[in-house]
Computed example of a mutant assay.
Amino acid sequence: ILSVALRRIFHVGGKDDEMEKKKIPEVEILRTAYIYDQLTAMNIQEEPTSDVQAIRFLLDAGNGYDRVAVQALIHSINILEPGVCVELTNGDKGLVIIPGMYNVLQPYVLSFRDNQVYNLSTPHVAAQLQIKDIMRTMDNRHVMGMDMLKQYSGEAVHIGEYRDNKTY
């Protein structure tokens, strides 16, 4: 199983026509998990692919991944579960409130813009709107007042410290 999996993953070694024709579930699971990990892992050369883009790649029949192995992976990693924030193709951002029953990429999403719930598995909604990607993080930047910024002269000022009779 491992030798066949390694040959299929890395495209090395001689072809054993009999083994190449067989769909060995363990080989397909290892191959699918390895490719998903390679797509989503951090590395020096390039930014990792998002979970949504990796799943789209694996689900694309033209890429040759076993559908059952991909579905098993999807069920084990729990992407697009309730509470995940997503960006939609129309630019809106939203919150997954119910996972997609038949397709992980088609959950119910609550739009932050207008509080409307979109069922992305409904054909007329899916024709106009899909998940573009997962939002990496919610925006948690601190707001800095322009007056405070203009007064900064380069020295260290710590919160709660007094400088020129002002508390920062």
Rank of each mutant, 00 (worst) to 15 (best):
M42S: 14
R67N: 02
Q71C: 04
S76K: 12
A33E: 13
Y34D: 12
I55P: 04
A69M: 05
Y36V: 14
G13Y: 03
L73I: 09
P25Q: 03
E28Y: 02
A72P: 00
I74M: 01
M42W: 14
G64Y: 05
E47T: 15
I44Q: 13
L58Q: 03
T40F: 03
E20N: 01
R56D: 00
I77M: 11
K22G: 01
G62E: 12
G64V: 05
I77T: 13
S76I: 05
I29D: 14
V70E: 02
K23I: 07
M42C: 11
E28H: 01
K22E: 08
G13R: 06
Y65H: 12
Q53M: 07
A72T: 10
H11A: 12
A69V: 04
A61G: 12
A33Q: 13
F57W: 09
D66F: 04
K21L: 04
T49C: 10
I35Q: 03
Y65W: 10
T49K: 05
V52M: 12
F57G: 01
M42L: 15
L59N: 09
V12R: 12
D60R: 14
L39T: 07
D37Q: 14
L30R: 06
D60L: 12
V52I: 15
T40K: 10
S50Q: 04
G64T: 07
Y36Q: 10
I44E: 15
L30F: 02
K23D: 06
T32E: 08
A72V: 00
G64D: 00
E20C: 09
D66A: 01
I74N: 03
A41R: 15
H11M: 08
